[in-house]
Design a protein around this nucleic acid. Structure first.
Lengths: 204, 204
DNA sequence: CGCATAGTTGACTACGCTCAACCCTGGTGG
DNA sequence: CCACCAGGGTTGAGCGTAGTCAACTATGCG
């Protein structure tokens, strides 16, 4: 992406920003901590978890390379959630105050961050829109269309386990599996192993 | 809010920005239109609708005063959805290019917009988090806690019909009603007409 | 050659949706 | 002032569909 690449940063920020490596299951920051640093995933995968009052917990997001972590913390005193590495990962750490200051001096940087925010917003709204679709197979179909859209292609390569996709869609893995077979049976898609071909849209 | 108040805008933007009044059910912009203007709701209520390929439609959001409309359009060529007024409303219209330009010259403005984006992101992520809670009464309870949080109070005044809240929660009105009575029966809340008192948290 | 994990299939359960009737409030007009 | 009406809200009955638990298969890795 065009975002926050270390080399292209203004000097003062470059000096302040550091790269941290974190091991799988290691905690990067914890819900309630003072938010003095803003992180962007450089490689690996970090999950954000929120712990509720009564022992409940919710996975807010799985952040992949290029994604920021808890952007709310940019304008909030404390982190609203806990960040835990899923696998060994690397993150870029920006001192928050330095970053906010840099927005004033380097408008392009501010714009980069705005683009990042808007993209994340778009992604989250997509997920929210999907959740409004109750039936599993229709939800899945819409999701596949979303995936196909940017590429303009109707062949989709799934890079991650179906299990993960299921949780992103808010479905049980079994349900996702059945939804896939159903779409296949109805002729909306074909698939082999991890590749899905999207047929022309016809009402499900 | 501290956002984009007309009077406090830098001069060039003030000259370019205008206020538009729109009647109920009037369309402000349409999905696919060239996105040359960015709108912020000044008064009233505007809903954003996305139309899918097969006659399906989804309400993405109900924007209230202070909220921006389809911020994705800031960095996108076309609007990804249609904006329709729910009631007679007023919106502030910013020429997009002028606004983007102003970000470079007026860092505080850029920061205001970033705050707006982050707030919207927060709100959308809250809704998304809620959707991960399957059982209606637990979802409702979490929602009420969210509402109570900022005020620090545990008395909640519902300003809009339960029907609307139901759709925001992704529930049928009947289900919400039942969930309310259930929480009341279990002692988690008390309520009279449109006022809800949140009792101390105990696992549901 | 197993072992662990992902994926699939089956049977059962549970919970939210739908449809329908009913209550209750507020507003309007006779 | 009361009768009527409309809308939101509540309650009931039945259905559908996704979740859950379980067994089984397939795949990849040591």
């Amino acid at each position: 992406m065009d975002l926050l690449v270390l080399d292209s940063l203004p000097k003062p920020l470059q000096n302040g920003a550091t790269i941290q490596t974190i091991m799988a299951e290691q905690i990067l920051f914890q819900q309630g901590d003072i938010a003095s640093t803003f992180f962007v995933v450089e490689s690996g995968q970090v999950r954000l978890v929120r712990y509720g009052s009564d022992d409940e917990s919710a996975i807010l997001e799985i952040a992949e390379p290029g994604q920021g972590l808890a952007e709310i913390s940019l304008f909030s005193d404390t982190y609203p959630c806990t960040a835990i590495a899923d696998v060994n990962s690397r993150v870029i750490a920006y001192p928050k105050l330095l970053l906010l200051q840099a927005f004033h001096d380097y408008p392009d940087l501010a714009e980069s961050v705005m683009v990042m925010l808007v993209q994340k917003l778009e992604r989250v709204m997509m997920r929210l829109e999907l959740r409004d679709i109750r039936s599993a197979h229709k939800r899945l179909l819409r999701y596949l269309r979303f995936l196909a859209q940017p590429k303009g292609q109707n062949v989709i390569q799934l890079d991650r386990p179906l299990k993960d996709i299921a949780t992103e869609l808010g479905l049980a893995p079994e349900t996702l599996s059945r939804a896939l077979t159903r779409l296949e049976r109805e002729g909306s898609i074909s698939r082999q192993t991890r590749q899905i071909i999207l047929h022309q849209s016809s009402a499900a």
